[in-house]
Simulated assay, not measured.
Amino acid sequence: MSDSTPPVLVTGAAGFIGAYVCRALRARGEAVIGLDNFNGYYDPQLKRDRVAALCPDIDLRTLDLTDRAGLAALFDELQPQRVIHLAAQAGVRYSLQNPHAYVDSNLAGFVNLLELCRHRHVGHLVYASSSSVYGDSATPPFSEDQRIDKPRSLYAATKAANELMGYSYAQLYGLRMTGLRFFTVYGRWGRPDMAPMIFSRAVLAGQPIEVFNNGEMRRDFTHIDDIVAGVLAALDRPPPAAVDGVPPHRVFNLGNHTPVELERFIAVIEAAAGRKADKVYKPMQPGDMVETMADTQRAREALGFEPRTAIEDGLPEVVDWCRDYFGTV
C-alpha cells in the first residue's frame, strides 16, 4: 500500500472480531488505525493480550465513541476513507441489567460515527449488526428480507435501530454503508461471555454448565475465520451509488447456514476436553432465541461468502486455547 493511502479505521479493534479483522487487513498490506475503549464488560487484560497476539503492529487508540470531540479530532487527523465499525456494547442478557450502556454505545456512539462519516466524506462504512435483530418475527432460515420489528432484548433493538439509522444516512446523504448480521461467532481469543468459551472452560475445570431451554436450542455457530473473510469481502465491495431511489445501503447475513443442536455442541467440547460435562438443565433465559439459522444466499452472490469451518474443526481450537490461556487442566 502507498504511504499516502488513508488507513482503514477499525472501531472495537481490541474486541474478538475487531482484532482478527485488524490482523487480516495488516496481512494484506493495509494501514490500520484501531480504537477501543477497553471497557470492563469483560476483563480488559484479555483484550490487551488479544491485540498483542493478533495485531501488535497496529496503531491502537484508547477512545470512547461517546467522546464526540475526541472522535472528531481522530477523523481530522486520519481522514479515513473506509471505516469498519465493530465497537458496541455486546451481550443479550447484560442488556437486561445495564440498559444505559447499550444506549450510550450502540445508539449515541453510532450517531457520532455516522455524523463524522457524513461530514468527512467517508467512502464506505461497514458496521456490525447481529442475528439477534430477527427476534420473534424470524422464521428459519433467517432472510434479510424478513421483518426485524419484534426484538427479544434491548441489545437486539439497538442493532435493529443501527440498521434503520444507517439506511436513513444512506438515503439522505448518499453515505455508502454495509451492515453485517453476525451469527454466534466463535474461535480462539473469543468472548468469555459466550457459550463456546463458557462451556469449554467449565468442562475443562470439571465445573457444571447451565443448559438452557432443557437443551432444546439450535445455533448457527460461525467460525471467526469465515466471519473475517466476509467482513473484508464486504469492505471491498461497497454498494453502488443510489439508483432509482434505492439508497447505497446493504445488509448481509454472515452465518454458517448450518444450525447445531446444543447437545451436539456440548458433545464436541466434551470430546476435545477429554471429559464429560456436568449439565444442569434450566428453563429458557429471557431475551434468548430458540434457534438461529442464516440464509446466506445474498452474501454468497454479492460477496462470494462461503463459510467453510464445521464445529468439529473449530470448537477443539477453542478448547485448546482455553487450556493454554487460562491454565485449566
Results as ranks from 00 to 15, higher is better:
Val268Ala: 10
Arg201Val: 03
Ala156Cys: 14
Arg82Tyr: 01
Ala156Arg: 11
Gly190Val: 07
Val185Arg: 14
Asn37Gly: 08
Pro283Thr: 12
Glu312Val: 09
Met165Ala: 11
Thr309Ile: 15
Leu164Thr: 09
Arg118Asn: 01
Arg308Ile: 02
Tyr155Ser: 11
Asp57Val: 01
Asp149Met: 15
Val122Asn: 02
Gln297Leu: 13
Asp49Arg: 09
Val10Phe: 02
Ile58Gly: 02
Gly29Tyr: 08
Ile33His: 08
Leu254Pro: 11
Tyr20Val: 05
Ala234Pro: 02
Ile58Phe: 10
Tyr281Lys: 01
Gly255Asn: 06
Gly29Phe: 06
Gln146Glu: 05
Arg181Leu: 06
Leu180Ala: 10
Ala294Val: 10
Asn37Thr: 01
Ala170Val: 05
Asp104His: 15
Asp193Thr: 09
Ser130Ala: 04
Asn214Ala: 13
Asp313Leu: 09
Ile17Gly: 05
Asp36Leu: 03
Tyr155Cys: 02
Gln89Thr: 14
Glu77Phe: 08
Asp226Pro: 13
Leu96Ala: 15
Glu30His: 03
Phe212Gln: 13
Leu232Thr: 01
Ile148Glu: 10
Leu86Ala: 08
Asp136Glu: 13
Val268Arg: 09
Ile84Thr: 00
Ser4Lys: 06
Leu25Gln: 04
Gln97Ser: 08
Gln285Lys: 14
Ala156Pro: 02
Tyr186Asn: 09
Pro80Cys: 02
Glu291Gln: 05
His249Tyr: 11
Asn39Met: 07
Pro286Asn: 09
Ala294Gly: 04
Leu116Cys: 02
Thr292His: 04
Pro248Leu: 06
Arg237Leu: 01
Thr62Phe: 00
Glu312Lys: 05
Gly245Pro: 13
Asn39Arg: 03
Gly12Gln: 09
Pro307Phe: 07
Asn112Leu: 08
Ser105Pro: 11
Pro307Gly: 01
Thr222Val: 05
Gly215Met: 06
Ala273Val: 05
Ser168Phe: 13
Ala273Leu: 06
Tyr281Glu: 06
Met197His: 14
Arg68Ala: 15
Ala138Thr: 06
Val51Met: 02
Lys276Arg: 12
Thr309Phe: 10
Glu216Gly: 04
Arg147Tyr: 07
Gly70Phe: 11
Arg118Cys: 03
Pro6Trp: 02
Arg93Val: 14
Val92Trp: 10
Asp149Val: 15
Gly245Ile: 14
Pro56Val: 07
His85Met: 02
Ile227Ser: 03
Arg298Asp: 08
Gly12Asn: 08
Gly215Leu: 14
Val290Thr: 15
Arg201Gln: 11
Asp320Met: 09
Met217Val: 15
Gly29Asn: 08
Asp320Glu: 10
Phe75Val: 03
Met194Leu: 15
Arg152Tyr: 03
Val21Ala: 13
Val10Ile: 06
His119Asp: 12
Gly18Asn: 12
Ala242Lys: 00
Lys279Trp: 02
